[in-house]
């Protein structure tokens, strides 16, 4: 137990949190940008599954990790476009399309694995490639900072960069305002001349790309193969985090990081004699507590306004 406390307050632990947290941050950002413009994307889990698998397959057949990654991103964007097409052109309920895509991805991925590898469990028989790990020269030699900043998977840096860009776009640019307007009231936004469909299209393409990055991170960096259902609910955790934060990007990211920290602690507590099933609920309980705390705060804030 002392050993665990020791390892939690160490630089290695932060590195683990980053490693565990990146796919979750990708998922929650994907959910966040979609819900911000008022078009729910609940197909994130399905997009992650399809991208994780297609990244591995394409990289194995072309021999290039980059082509694999762009293929994965293309699949993710394509699936997001399916949501856009059906919901905006054909006025279908985006939730229904999301369910359809999730169901489709779960089974189609198994079928795709079967025809390409002859197995349904994993792609270990294919020589797939992984995206590079980035070692920043000079910085990596600085003791603590080097360990923290250098030596991560490439997509980790992409994740941080995109999170910052999204923050700037949403909070500092007119386009961000338009995105929020579309989410708050599409008709009103339309009436003041905002092209709602165009804004939503751009947001959903970004959402699909982000979810695809989350999937590719899992199968082309963190791990180097695809294993059936390896996303293991990370897409849903992202959706939950986006729901907790509502329109507030800071809270969305905070929730996700909190969940990642809890998960990293769980991975260590699992090796102690504590009951596993109980330990495994810790991340969810943490999010629940956060959610309750948040709504209490909001409740008080609202009452304050009324007075």
């Amino acid at each position: 137990m002392d050993g665990i406390l020791g390892s939690i307050f160490s630089i290695d632990f932060l590195v683990v949190v980053i490693r565990v947290g990146v796919p979750l941050v990708f998922a929650s950002l994907a959910a966040y940008v979609a819900s911000l413009v008022g078009l729910s994307n609940i197909a994130i889990e399905g997009i992650m599954i399809m991208s994780a698998l297609s990244g591995v397959l394409i990289s194995a057949f072309t021999g290039s990790a980059w082509i694999g990654f762009f293929g994965a991103a293309a699949i993710g964007i394509f699936m997001a476009l399916v949501i856009v097409f059906f919901s905006m052109r054909l006025k279908a309920d985006p939730i229904m399309i999301g369910i359809a895509l999730n169901l489709f991805a779960t089974d189609f991925s198994v079928w795709l694995m079967l025809i390409t590898t002859g197995t349904k469990g994993m792609t270990g028989s294919l020589p797939s490639k992984v995206l590079p790990t980035v070692h920043i020269p000079f910085i990596e030699d600085i003791p603590i900072l080097g360990q923290l900043i250098s030596g991560h998977y490439l997509l980790t840096y992409v994740c941080v960069a995109i999170a910052i860009i999204i923050w700037i776009v949403v909070y500092k640019t007119p386009f961000g305002l338009r995105m929020k307007a579309c989410g708050l009231d599409a008709t009103a936004a339309e009436s003041v001349g905002i092209k709602v469909n165009k804004v939503r299209l751009i947001a959903l393409i970004l959402s699909g790309f982000l979810a695809a990055c989350g999937g590719a991170y899992l199968s082309m960096g963190y791990l180097s193969f695809y294993s059936d259902n390896m996303t293991a609910g990370r897409g849903w955790i992202g959706i939950a985090a986006a729901a907790v934060g509502g329109g507030n990007l800071g809270i969305v990211l905070l929730t996700t990081v909190g969940f990642a920290i809890a998960q990293a602690i769980v991975n260590m507590l699992i090796l102690t004699s504590l009951p596993t099933d109980l330990v495994n609920t810790i991340p969810y309980i943490c999010v629940l507590i956060g959610l309750v705390a948040l709504s209490i705060r909001e409740y008080h804030a609202r009452r304050g306004k009324v007075k």
């Binding site: 490693r19 963190y222 791990l223 390896m230 293991a232 990293a264 991975n267 699992i270 090796l271």
Partner: peptide
């Protein structure tokens, strides 16, 4: 050292647990 993943899917979690071991 004994550890349980909690399900049969989460490949990444199993990797973390093995790394901790």
């Amino acid at each position: 050292v004994t550890g349980w993943v909690g399900d049969f899917n989460d490949t990444a979690k199993a990797k973390e647990i093995a790394g901790n071991m």
